[in-house]
Nucleic acid binder design. Sequence first.
RNA 1: GCGGCGGUCGUCUAGCCUGGACUAGGACGCCGGCCUGCCAAGCCGGAGGUCCCGGGUUCAAAUCCCGGCCGCCGCACCA
Length: 590
Amino acid sequence: MAEQDLYNKIMELAKRRGFFWPSYEIYGGVAGFYDFGPYGVLLKKRIIEKWRKYIVENHSNYVVEIETPIIGPSKVYEASGHVASFTDPIVTCTKCGRKFRADHLIEDKLDIDAEGLSPEEMTKLIKEHNIRCPVCGGVLGEVKLFNLLFPTQIGPYEGNKGYLRPELAQGMFVAFKRVLEVMRGKLPLGIAQIGRVGRNEISPRQAMMRLREFTIMEMEYFIDPEDPDGSCPFYSKVEDEVLRIRTYEMKVRNEPPKEFTVKEAVESGVIIHKCLAYWMVVAKKFLNSLGVPDENMFFDEKGPHERAHYSSQTFDQMVKVSRWGWIEVAGHSYRGDYDLSRHMEYSGVDLTVFKPYEKPIKVKVKKAFIDKAYVGRRFKSEAKKILMEAAKIPEEKLIEAAERGTGITIAGYEIPAEAIKVVEREVKVTGRKFIPHVVEPSFGTDRIVYVAFEYSYREKAGRTILSLPRDVAPVQAGVVPLVEKEEALREKAIELYNLLVDNGFYVIYDDTGSIGRRYARMDEIGVPAVFTIDYQTLEDGTVTMRDRDTWKQVRLPFNEAPNALRRFLYDGVDIHELGTPVTVEGDGEG
RNA sequence: GCGGCGGUCGUCUAGCCUGGACUAGGACGCCGGCCUGCCAAGCCGGAGGUCCCGGGUUCAAAUCCCGGCCGCCGCACCA
């Protein structure tokens, strides 16, 4: 299969040229961990930089970035639900050794809700109902818990349990109060973070697609649930953009993804919130900018049972790769107020947001009182007891008893309706308190690095070219003297190298081997432009600039190189706009 | 975790079935020299290997057997 070869070619190139490779190689390797090498680090760094531009900097009035620890105390992950929900009850077949989700087996066979049962209870159910291995029919063993959190210990005391974070989100939720304060209490507020997470996957595979430790780029976008319009000030800019979406219903009916304009998707309820739709558009454009065309990308809605415990709607952003078909590169979830509510509950700290009204409003509020004079006259010494009991009764009940004329029984004494006084009072309210809702776009950086690699891999004239988008190419330019051993050319080349470095570029200089070999090396690591110093440079001070993708060259003055490179890398300018074309032997077709 | 297939210089690979002249061969890459006025050119020289790891069988193991690790594929798992 020619398509399968692409994966092999990429892994081979990545290893050979130093982009990435399996970690701990000299000790035989450990599944689920990958090293990034010199060019891989640069590539990943530039992809992260681009994400930061798309998500944070382009929305700097609303979105900020923070950094929080990789290790968290147990309490945080109890609150988030990970200690409970990130744990799978697993049962092993004693005959064939296959492992199954115990709760799923029980739910399927007995048609009951097995969630929240203890391992002992599940083992008992399996024994009682003689549930067998669904594959080989063998007897099942004890139900054991497997937790995907990496446990650790904070400090020297064993009781002080901690976990490696399985996602970045909790860092933002826990720091929410402080960040909101710093941002002067205003919503919408996006809190972004880029960092490493750990998940103790049972069986990681597929190279960098499923790792035990990886880098996530994530944002929690906090909004007022009652103000969808105000929450998404950028929405109108993207209304006419098109997203390819497969809703859960479409998936069930086995239909392919369909194009929706953002407006259609939001108005028809396909996407439940404008903000979710907006960030999906940004995410789509981000992947476009890394070389993924629209037709190789879509948003896949997760069904109710496929979603995480916190989510009310989730779309997986899927990208097509050669070997595995569609893989998830980002998730877009509506997390509601789940996380902040839980942290309020577990920490006891108020995480609500106060939003003042433009003008304080007057609200008519009904108040109900027991007529103390009546109670005192009527019940004498029992009055005190009755009134204390009455204070515990919810106000609505008293109002109801009075308005329906039924009266109420308190501490065994009948209080007639006439003894309950209801008054309407005007109260001034200056704003409201609420728990913000959260829209979360979350990206798997390492997968995206792989995707960028795959979409830029080209072969031309028997050579490999890594046609990375110019602005994420790890090395931005090369400088070479035309021939190896000519001192005058080398001096001039070093001078150009220094000029480019001083202008902030990442440049490599290479004077070994034939000129063709050096161009080939640069193409293979994706250097977008190579400047060549030739004999004409010594005569008229011009250099040539070569485009990695077309192999076309232009000639331009030495001192204009930095500016030309800037326009070439960041403005996407065609090489022909940067100088006068050069025709050389072997140009183009090599 | 289960089943199948695989693991040999930096990379790709020959050898393994049928154990011994394998001191593990080749290609590409890398390094040095000559040459070279624009696309992996040529010539000469060189460095580079725990044959994945451990154990066993044998006079003798890259080769056969067992266990482990790692990779790929299928199953399961992937809040």
